[in-house]
Every structure is written in C-alpha cells, then in structure tokens.
C-alpha cells in the first residue's frame, strides 16, 4: 500500500522543527529513521498532514560514548552506535542494538526514533529504563525538559512526550557492573515475545545496583522493583537468584495490560520471563 498524501518539510534548524510542531501539533509527525513510521504510512495507519524530517539537523545526529554513558542525539543511527569502537563502554548497549531487526533496518533506525516510538517489545526503551536513562525534550511551549526513563513510557507506543515536543537526545548511563539483554523472538530479528534486561554490580562481595526490566510482556517496558529488592545486598549465588525469580513471577502476576495473544499465552510469557532472568543472572555471576 502507498501512503495517504502529506506535506513534507526538512528544516535545517531545530527551531524551525519546533515551530512546525507547535503550529501543527498532532497533524505533524517527525520522521527519524522511518523504520516504524514508513510502514505505518504505507498501511495508511498513520495519516499525518505534514511529515517533518530531522535529517538536515546535523547536531541531532551526533553521539558520544564515554565510560560514563551514551549521549546520543535523536538522529544517531543504531548501526553507527553499534559499530562504534567504544560501544562496550556502555555494557548492554551493543547487545540491545544488535537485536533490533536486521542490519538493513538498523542502518536507518535511530536512537531517538526507537525511544520515541516506545514499542512495548523494543530493546532500546527497555535498556533505557533498566539503566535509569534520561530523555531530553524540546518544544516552543515548554522549552527544554529532561524526563527520567521511569517517567517517560506510559503505555503501548505512548510516552509523556507532547505532540509539539521533539525528543532531541537520550542519555544512557553506563552501568558499573554487567548488563545482559536477552529475549525470545519468533525468529532472529523479530520483536521479542518476551525479553529482559538484567543488570547488577558486585561490590564487597554483595550485589549492588540491580536492575530488572521486562519487555514484550505488557504495554510498556516494566521495571520489576520487588524482584530487584531481593538482590540488593545479597550474595550472588543460586539461592539469591532463585529467590529473585520467584519474586519476579509473583510481581509479574500484578502487571497490568499483560500480553496474552495468539503468538504466546500470558502463562508462557510469565514463565519464560522468569527463565530469561534466571539465565541472565546465572550467566553474569
């Protein structure tokens, strides 16, 4: 199918983009890599009046990776970050990126687009949440605001970003310990049926900075706080991990909007989420 007609602008200055968004609100949609937007345009599921292309705004395409973390302009491309020699400085980042679709898709996919799109089964939003990252938004009305990942995602493809706001950059802090990004997908390259990001560090023989995020199991990536709590200050051993997974499965039962569909039952997702987390924990110790 072919898209419904729309107008197109590719401004060279951020302010012009923000002006367009301020003027058009919901009628405008920005295009970043287009790897989620264009399929929706093609299916006529998205029918914007105006498509605003970010490709000419050079600043948005830059990114820096240090041992502190990734600061990525919204238009930084997944493939460029993935192939950057320092990508390992942010544990989990390369793994998350490599599980997005295929190389041919990642060559356009942007960091900002993936986060703004907020697919419940997407890897990058889950990583951002697990590592307590931040999202920077700009608009004419509100100026610049920084939103914690924990506050950013609100539901299936929903975020706190207002229609007139542009996501300009993403901050993913480097975790002091190890990070695993694991998932079960139908085929390599598909969105996850069940996925988990698991992180922790070990200091003085005990676990610190634990983080467990599930994705693909409900409307948005979810942080499993009570399961994390089991890990804090515990010794990294099989008993701890088992207790964590048991707690996780309990907590899972309380999740809202829990996915149960033709591809995988809710029972399956619940059980396998636990399995993935258990494996990740074990592989990291």
């Amino acid at each position: 199918m072919k898209p419904h007609p729309f107008d197109y602008a590719a401004p060279e200055a951020l302010d012009e983009v923000l002006d367009l968004l301020a003027r058009l609100g919901d009628d405008a949609v920005v295009i970043a890599g287009g790897q989620s937007l264009v399929p929706m345009l093609n299916l006529r599921l998205a029918r914007p009046e105006m498509v605003v292309d970010l490709r000419r705004i050079a600043d948005l395409a830059t990114f820096t990776i240090t041992d502190q973390g990734l600061r990525a302009g919204a238009m930084a491309r997944a493939i460029d970050v993935e192939e950057h020699p320092d990508v390992h400085l942010v544990p989990g980042l390369g793994d998350a990126l490599r599980q997005i679709g295929h190389p041919q898709v990642r060559s356009r996919t942007t960091i900002g687009g993936s986060v703004a799109h907020a697919d419940a089964a997407a890897e990058l939003p889950a990583l951002l949440l697990a590592l307590s990252g931040q999202v920077v938004l700009h608009s004419v009305a509100r100026g610049e605001r920084t939103v914690e990942a924990a506050d950013f995602f609100t539901g299936p493809m929903m975020t706190v970003r207002e229609p007139d706001e542009l996501l300009t950059s993403v901050w993913i802090p480097a975790h002091p310990g190890s990070v695993a990004v694991v998932e079960v997908a139908k085929r390599p390259g598909d969105f996850a049926m069940v996925g988990a990001v698991v992180a922790y560090a070990i200091a003085d023989g005990v676990i610190s900075d634990p983080s467990i995020v599930l994705f693909g199991v409900s409307g948005q990536p979810v942080r499993m706080a009570s399961a994390e709590a089991v890990l804090v200050g515990a010794v990294a051993n099989a008993n701890t991990f088992q207790a964590t997974v048991e707690q996780l499965r309990e907590e899972f039962g309380l999740l809202e909007g829990f996915r149960d569909d033709v591809y995988a039952t809710g029972g399956y997702r619940r059980q396998v989420a636990g399995t993935l987390v258990a494996r990740a924990l074990a592989s990291m110790s």
């Binding site: 079960v184 139908k186 049926m193 591809y263 995988a264 039952t265 029972g267 399956y268 396998v272």
Partner: peptide, 12 residues
C-alpha cells in the same frame, strides 16, 4: 509448534 505451544504441551 510455536515456542508457546511447545511450552504448554510440556508444562500446562
């Protein structure tokens, strides 16, 4: 025999 179906046959 999707992963979910296999898992159900095994565990449910």
């Amino acid at each position: 025999l999707s992963p979910s179906r296999i898992w159900q046959a095994l565990h449910e």
